[in-house]
Design a protein around this nucleic acid. Structure first.
Lengths: 169, 169
DNA sequence: GGAGTGATACTCGGATATCTGGTGTCCGAGTTTTCGCGG
DNA sequence: CCGCGAAAACTCGGACACCAGATATCCGAGTATCACTCC
């Protein structure tokens, strides 16, 4: 089992966007340079986050991306689902029904115990993700990082943040 | 994120093997026929389970597979790790360190908060898997399935179970 | 009749193709800005 | 000096290659069994 690398990219981008001053946007190009990843591929994920309603995109020159909601209302689960999809990790293919032994029609009315057990673990995973918000991540970053480094990062980003006149209705 | 289909196959096979009478073995061919899956590919996963020490393989005619440990001591986490690997779903590639902004050498001494948050969810997933054993699965199967179907399955398997003289030292 | 022995048939084990999904890239559509022109 | 307008440049958005890992398969190595022969 492997989680898409885009999840990591998306979470870091959301954390950066969440730290911007009110109304500021950052172009995808800048986000890619800051994280040292492919700009075009990152755009693909940012587009997905936009469709999911987590970020807003501002077109045109001096455009970019910004959070669509307060960081406190964006959970890690929202982000993971947006990028990686809604489907659970375990997919039951009902191999119990392929047995050559004839079973009655009602034999499989109740769900497969293997499936139930695996989905229990999946629910625990999702609950742990849902209990953490983007605000928690941002708070942890500002707490643990060295203050000098944070200041330099903020400075670098401040030089590239955009404030468009577009209010996005 | 997608869990390997082999995990489902492995769990069902372990459940069947756990229901066999003491000392009985089933060939991979029979397990494949019972689940309606590719015999050769299932063998690949059974070999993996053997290497992980969850099942034992008996070579030669009238050989087959049997559990290597009591069902109570085999957790779902053991099975998932055996087939799908030890690695966590989320892999941190430390993109925070790729920033063009120069940081001090000690800036990244503490772990990445994104990584910490994601691994917290991963730990919850693993804990949920570790808390359930193969015996629980088998118990659930015998509880929820229709008794007539269970009897017919047991009968079909009884015709194919093997008792070799090999003690496997 | 019993023990030894060889062939046998069946099992598991590892190396080899195929294919889906994630990864990465490119070009086009859309919009705001900006510069120039006219009033 | 101010308003208008058209061109431009920069942005995001969707369609197209590439690659790794999971999926699926085949053939070979090994061993308990079984039948036959000999004692």
């Amino acid at each position: 089992m492997r989680l898409s690398e885009g999840v990591e990219w998306g979470l870091h981008c959301l954390a950066i966007l969440g730290g911007l001053p009110e109304g500021g946007t950052l172009p995808g190009r800048v986000l890619a340079e800051f994280h040292g990843v492919s700009p075009t591929y990152l755009l693909k994920h940012l587009k997905t986050l936009t469709e999911a309603g987590l970020v807003e995109s501002v077109p045109g020159p001096r455009g970019g991306f910004r959070l669509a909601k307060p960081p406190e209302t964006i959970t890690l689960l929202d982000t993971v689902i947006a990028i990686d999809g809604e489907a659970a990790a375990f997919r039951c293919t009902e191999i119990r029904q392929r047995s050559p032994v004839r079973r009655s029609a009602t034999a499989f009315a109740l769900p497969c115990p293997v499936k139930v057990a695996m989905l229990k673990a999946d629910a625990a995973w999702r609950a742990a993700l849902a209990s953490q918000t983007l605000a928690d991540i941002i708070g942890a970053v500002t707490r643990i990082a060295d203050q000098e480094g944070l200041r330099r990062n903020a400075e670098w980003l401040a030089e590239r943040v955009r404030f468009t006149t577009n209010t996005l209705s």
